[in-house]
Design a protein around this nucleic acid. Structure first.
Length: 518
RNA sequence: GCUCCGGUAGUAUAGCCAGGACAAGUAUACGGGGCUUUCGACCCCGGGACCCGGGUUCAAAUCCCGGCCGGAGCACCA
C-alpha cells in the first residue's frame, strides 16, 4: 500500500486520527524587549503629505501586532507640523488604509492639536537656558552645524531670548529670519545634536488650523513630546530615524519627562522595480506612463487594492518574511504573491478566459448546455451554465505547437482530434472524439461562439528596470474572449481565470480586469 | 567629506550579543515526482548561502583587526 493509499484509507476509517499540520506555522514575531503585558503602547505616525503605501502598511502591522501581542494600546497620530506639505485628503488616505489592513487604533490625535503645549514647553526650555533664538541664515546654520562652529546668537541672555521668542510668536519676523534652536552639543559626533532648530516660521495656512499659527515645531521636538504624552513605550520605525533617538531622549530629559522609550529600527521595505519614493512615482505620472496614484503598478494602498493584493496576505507576509535589519532589502513580488494566492485560492471563483483566441470547429459535436463548478473543491460557490454549439474559441498558444491528429480536451466538455490548423486565419478544424478526461490528455479552457464577451486584462509589471531606468512597458494589455458569466463578476471581486491567473474586476461596466498573479 | 550602521542560497530571513550537536534552519523562487478534468491549491524529493583577507581559540557564521561593498544621517521635511 502506498503512502497515499494509506492516508486515503485512514481518512475513510478513522479521520479523527489524522493530524492536520498547518502548512505554515503561525510565525510569532520575536519578543519585544522590555515589554510588559498590558503596558505596551505603540503608534502609527503617518505624515499626511502623500498617499499611504506598502511601507506604511508593513510598519503599521508591526506596531499593531506588537500592541495586540501584549494586550497594549496603539495610537494613530498624524505628524502634521509642516503646513505646506499636509493635505486633508491624505489624512483620510491613512485612516482608510489602516482600516483596510484590519488595524484598529485605540486613540487618535494630530500633533498640530497641541500647538499651545509646544509653545509652553518651548518657553520652559528658553527659561532654563536650553534654547535660543538664532537669526543666522539657513545656509550659515547648515555650514556651522557641519563644521561644529557656534554662532553669536548662542550667547544671548534668557531675557533677550524671551523677548525674541515673543516677537517670533507675534509675527514680527518673516519666514527664514529666525528660528528657535535647542542648545545641544556643537561638537557631538551625532550631527543631529548640534543645536538643532526646533521651531521655524511658516506663513502658510494649515488644512486643520488655517492661519492661526505661524510658528511651527520641527519633527524631533514634536515627536519627543508627543511620544511622552501618549505614553508610548515602544517605537518601531525605519532606520532613517536612528540617529534621532539620542536627540529625542535629550529633549525629553531636559523637559523632565522621565520615562524610557524603546526604539526598534529597521531598513525600509522595498519591492523590486517598485519605488516608494514620491519623486520617482511622480516622474512616472509626469511621463504619462500612469495616470493616477492608485495605479495598480504603484505601491500605494489604493494601487495594491486594485492589483488584488489582500490585507491578510500583507499581514502574513510582514510577520513571516520581515526582520529587524539595517541591510538594504528588496523583496521579490513573488514572495507576497505566494501569501496572496493562499488567501485567494479557497474562495476565488474559477471562470474561463481565452487570451489571443482562435476559432475551433468541432465537427460532430452536438450543441447543448452544461453546468460547470465555480470551484474545484469549494462546493459552496455553486455552478454556472454555459450554452454551446460546435464552434469555440481557444487560446492560440494551446494549439501553436501541436500537430493534426493530436487529441485535446475542452475542460468539463469534450475531446477533439485536430484535423487542420490554419494559424494565419486563426482557425482550427477538428472532429469530436468520444471519451472523458485521461491522464495523457491536455486539458484547456474554452469559450463558446454562441455566447462570449470580449475581455481585457491589464498586467502590471515593474515600473523600474533598475535604480533609474524606467520600464516603458510596465503595463501589458491582454485582449481575449471570456465566457458570458464574466458579466456577473462584481466590481472588485477577484476570480481566477483558469490557466491564466487571479484577476480583479477593475470596472463597474466594462469587462476590464487587472491580473494579480498566477 | 564627516559620523553611525550593516553584509547568511536568486529573493527574504533564523542563527551572531552569552563561540561548540550549524556537514547552517525556514519561506519563496527554481528542478523532479505525486495528486487534481487549471499552468491554481495540496503532498513528497532535490540543488543552492555564512563578502574577502588576517588574527584569537582545542573550536569562529558567531569575537578582534584591515579591506571591499551597501545603507542611513549631516533640513527652518517627516
Amino acid at each position: 500500500m502506498s503512502l497515499n493509499e494509506q492516508k486515503a484509507l485512514l481518512e475513510e476509517i478513522a479521520p479523527e486520527l489524522i493530524e492536520y499540520k498547518p502548512k505554515v506555522e503561525e510565525k510569532k514575531l520575536p519578543p519585544l524587549p522590555h515589554a510588559l503585558r498590558g503596558r505596551v503602547v505603540t503608534r502609527l505616525p503617518p505624515e499626511p503629505s502623500g498617499y499611504m503605501h506598502i511601507g506604511h502598511a508593513m510598519s503599521g502591522i508591526l506596531n499593531y501586532v506588537y500592541a495586540k501581542m501584549y494586550d497594549g494600546k496603539i495610537w494613530l497620530r498624524f505628524e502634521d507640523t509642516d503646513p505646506r506639505k499636509v493635505k486633508l485628503e491624505y489624512y483620510e488616505s491613512f485612516r482608510k488604509g489602516y482600516r483596510w489592513l484590519g488595524i484598529e487604533w485605540d486613540y487618535e490625535k494630530n500633533n498640530s492639536d497641541d500647538m499651545e503645549l509646544f509653545y509652553e514647553y518651548a518657553e520652559k526650555l528658553i527659561n532654563k537656558g536650553y534654547a535660543y533664538i538664532c537669526f543666522c541664515k539657513q545656509d550659515k546654520i547648515k555650514v556651522y552645524r557641519r563644521e561644529g562652529i557656534k554662532c553669536e546668537h548662542r550667547d544671548h541672555s534668557v531675557e533677550e531670548n524671551i523677548r525674541f521668542w515673543n516677537n517670533l510668536l507675534d509675527g514680527k519676523y518673516g519666514e527664514g529670519e529666525a528660528v528657535l534652536r535647542l542648545l545641544g552639543d556643537m561638537s557631538s559626533t551625532n550631527t543631529t545634536m548640534r543645536d538643532p532648530s526646533i521651531f521655524r516660521i511658516v506663513k502658510h495656512p494649515h488644512p486643520l488650523h488655517g492661519s492661526k499659527y505661524i510658528v511651527w515645531p520641527l519633527y524631533d521636538y514634536a515627536v519627543a513630546i508627543e511620544d511622552y504624552l501618549c505614553n508610548v513605550t515602544h517605537v518601531l520605525r525605519t532606520s532613517e530615524f536612528a540617529l534621532r533617538d539620542e536627540l529625542q531622549n535629550y529633549i525629553r530629559k531636559i523637559l523632565g519627562m522621565d520615562r524610557e522609550i524603546h526604539y526598534i529600527e529597521y531598513s525600509r521595505f522595498e519591492f523590486k522595480g517598485t519605488p516608494v519614493s514620491k519623486r520617482k512615482l511622480r516622474k512616472i505620472i509626469e511621463m504619462g506612463l500612469a495616470s493616477s496614484w492608485d495605479d495598480p503598478r504603484f505601491p500605494t494602498v489604493e494601487g495594491l487594492i486594485r492589483r488584488g493584493i489582500m490585507p491578510e496576505a500583507i499581514r502574513e507576509f510582514t510577520l513571516t518574511q520581515t526582520g529587524f535589519t539595517y541591510v538594504k532589502r528588496e523583496y521579490d513580488w513573488s514572495l507576497l504573491y505566494a501569501y496572496n494566492r493562499r488567501v485567494l485560492d479557497p474562495t476565488a471563483r474559477r471562470l474561463f478566459f481565452v487570451p489571443d483566441p482562435v476559432e475551433l470547429i468541432v465537427e460532430g459535436l452536438k450543441s447543448g448546455e452544461i453546468a460547470l463548478p465555480y470551484h474545484p473543491t469549494n462546493k459552496e460557490l455553486g455552478y454556472r451554465k454555459i450554452r454551446y454549439s460546435n464552434i469555440f474559441y481557444i487560446s492560440k498558444s494551446d494549439v501553436a505547437t501541436v500537430k493534426p491528429g493530436t487529441i485535446i480536451r475542452l475542460k468539463y466538455l469534450a475531446n477533439f482530434r485536430i484535423v487542420d490548423i490554419d494559424l494565419n486565419n486563426n482557425k482550427v478544424v477538428s472532429e469530436y472524439v468520444e471519451g472523458g478526461p485521461s491522464e495523457s490528455l491536455q486539458i484547456i479552457q474554452w469559450v463558446p461562439k454562441v455566447e462570449y464577451i470580449p475581455v481585457r486584462v491589464l498586467v502590471p509589471e515593474p515600473l523600474y528596470l533598475d535604480e533609474e531606468e524606467i520600464n516603458n512597458e510596465s503595463l501589458k494589455i491582454i485582449d481575449g474572449y471570456g465566457e458570458s458569466n464574466i458579466i456577473d463578476i462584481r466590481y472588485g471581486e477577484i476570480v481566477q481565470f483558469e490557466r491564466f491567473g487571479f484577476c480583479r474586476r477593475d470596472s463597474e461596466k466594462e469587462n476590464i480586469f487587472i491580473k494579480s498573479h498566477e
